[in-house]
Design a protein around this nucleic acid. Sequence first.
DNA 1: CTTGGAAGTTAGATGCTCTAACATATGTAA
DNA 2: TTACATATGTTAGAGCATCTAACTTCCAAG
Lengths: 202, 202
Amino acid sequence: MAQEQIKEARKSYHHGDLKGALIRATQQLIEEKGIDHFSVSDACRLAGVSTAAPYKHFKSKDEMVVAGVCDAMARHAAELQADLAPHLKGSQDRIVAMGANYVDYALREPGMFRLRFAHFEGEPPEAIQMSGEAIYGLVQEEVRAYLGEPEINERVRDRAYLLWCVVHGMSYLSMVPEFASKRPLGSPEDYLRRMSDVVLAR
Amino acid sequence: MAQEQIKEARKSYHHGDLKGALIRATQQLIEEKGIDHFSVSDACRLAGVSTAAPYKHFKSKDEMVVAGVCDAMARHAAELQADLAPHLKGSQDRIVAMGANYVDYALREPGMFRLRFAHFEGEPPEAIQMSGEAIYGLVQEEVRAYLGEPEINERVRDRAYLLWCVVHGMSYLSMVPEFASKRPLGSPEDYLRRMSDVVLAR
DNA sequence: CTTGGAAGTTAGATGCTCTAACATATGTAA
DNA sequence: TTACATATGTTAGAGCATCTAACTTCCAAG
C-alpha cells in the first residue's frame, strides 16, 4: 500500500474500476484500523460510492476482505520474484534475500500479512491456501538448490521447515514494536544470514 | 479454554460473576468465530444477560476483548511457570520445555495467541505490553542461565532473540494447517531441541 | 431497618451489513 | 441509429450490533 488513496471524486455515474478501488480501500483501512474496525461502509466512503455498491462485486464483507488479501498476496509474490531475480540460484544471497523480503513485507503490510495466515472461520479461502502452498513450494525449491540436492527429499523438507520457522518468527517479531526493539544490533539480513548458515549447513 | 461453557441459567437478579463469565465467553467466542465475527451480543447470550450488562464492567467492546486477552495471558504465564518447574534451571530441557509450551499454547488458544501480538489501533494496551515484556524477560533469563553468563549481556540478548524467533515461527506455522502439515516427521520438541542446539551453542 | 451504590433491566439512538427495487450507462445486434 | 440486455450504480429499509440513559433490584454498611 505505497500509493496513498484519496477520496475519489467521480464524474460519471459509473465508477470505472470500483472493484479495484474497493480492494485498495479495504487494504488501506485494514492497515490503518485493523480487521476488527474495518467496515464496508468506510471503504465505500473512501471510494465515493453508496454502501450498497460493493455487493455488485462481492458477495459479502468477508469476501471483500479475502479479495483484498488475495490481491496483496499476488503483489507480494510478484515483488518477491523480482527481489530474487538478481541473485544466483543456489546462492546463500538468494536465501537471505527471500527471507529479508518476507520480513520487509510483513513490516510494510502487517494487516495483510496477518490475515494471510489468519483463522477464516469455516471457509478456508481456496485462493489464499493455494498461494500459500505456492510460496512454500518456492521455499523448498530454493533450499533444494542451495543444498545441491537433486530433488525435494526429506533433507530438503526438513531444512526448509526450519528456515521457514525462522523467517516467520522474525517477521512476526518485527511487526510487534515491543519485540522488534529487542533485536540486538544487526539488520534482519545479518540475522537471516547467520540463521541460514546453521539451519542450512551442508 | 478447556472448560466448556454452557449457556448460564441464572436464579437471582444478579449474576454473581458476570465479569468473569463475560471474559470466558469472549475467549470462547473469539476462538470459535475469530475476532472479526465476535460480538458483545453473542457473549451476552452465552452469559444469559442483556446486551447492556457488559457496560457495567467494561467501557467498550475493545476493552472487553483486551480483558479476555489479558486473562488468557495470565493463565498462560502461570501454566508456563508450572511447566518449567520440573526442569533444572540452566538445562536444555528447560529451554525446550519453554518453547514447547509456547507452541502448545498457540495451538490450544490460537485466537488469544494472535490477539496478544495484534495491532490494537491507537491504544497499545498497557497490560498486554507489560506482560509481553515480562515473558521476554523470562526468556532472556533462561538463556542467560543456560549459557552460564553472569548477567544479561549482549551475547544473551543476541541468542535470546534468535531463540524467540524460532519459537514464534514454530508457533505461527503450527497454527496454520497448510503449514503445520509441512513439518517433516518429528515432534515440535525435536525441532526445538535441534534449534536450541545451534542457536544457543556455547 | 434504612439507604446508597453496585449491578442488573428496558428503550432507544446511531451505525453497519446486506437485500430489493429501481435508475443509468454501455455494448451488441438488428 | 435504435433498442434491448446487462452491468453497475442508487435509494429504501430490515435486522442486528454497540453503547447510553433512565429505571429496577438487591446487597451490605451503618
